[in-house]
């Protein structure tokens, strides 16, 4: 059965102030972040600048620094911060009983 939400694993599998990826067959990866405060966010693993893998960046506060040219992307909105302009699509996340669920429809759209 296909549900609204995709169960991608335990919250604890994502390092604090780190991230993991979800592979979407035929599409781009989705990056799933966990902040120092324990909040979880999912975004396309694609920097709005030149497509850097955001999942590989340093997570600080509610943002991630892209590993390629250090743009800072706000995790909650996907918006580039500071002087830079651009936006990475986000995927709604829900935590239930310690499991991370991401919105199926957005995940598909984002990965495409």
């Amino acid at each position: 059965m296909i549900g609204e939400w995709l169960d991608i694993g335990w919250v604890d599998e994502i390092p604090v102030r780190g991230s993991r990826t979800v592979q979407v067959t035929g599409g781009d990866d989705i990056a799933v972040f966990r902040t120092g405060e324990g909040k979880v966010f999912a975004l396309a693993d694609r920097c709005p600048h030149k497509g850097g893998r955001l999942s590989q960046g340093i997570v600080h506060g509610g943002a991630v620094a892209c590993p390629l040219h250090n743009w800072r992307i706000a995790l909650a909105t996907g918006e580039a911060m500071g002087e830079d302009k651009g936006c990475t699509p986000t995927v709604p996340v829900k935590i239930s009983g310690g499991r991370v669920l991401i919105c199926r429809a957005s995940a598909l759209k984002v990965a495409a």
Binding site: V22, Q23, V32, L108
Partner: peptide, 16 residues
């Protein structure tokens, strides 16, 4: 390793 892998299953879910 990725945390999970997701393969769209229905025709309507085919990726572009």
């Amino acid at each position: 390793a990725p945390m999970a892998t997701f393969t769209p299953t229905r025709a309507t879910e085919e990726m572009a």
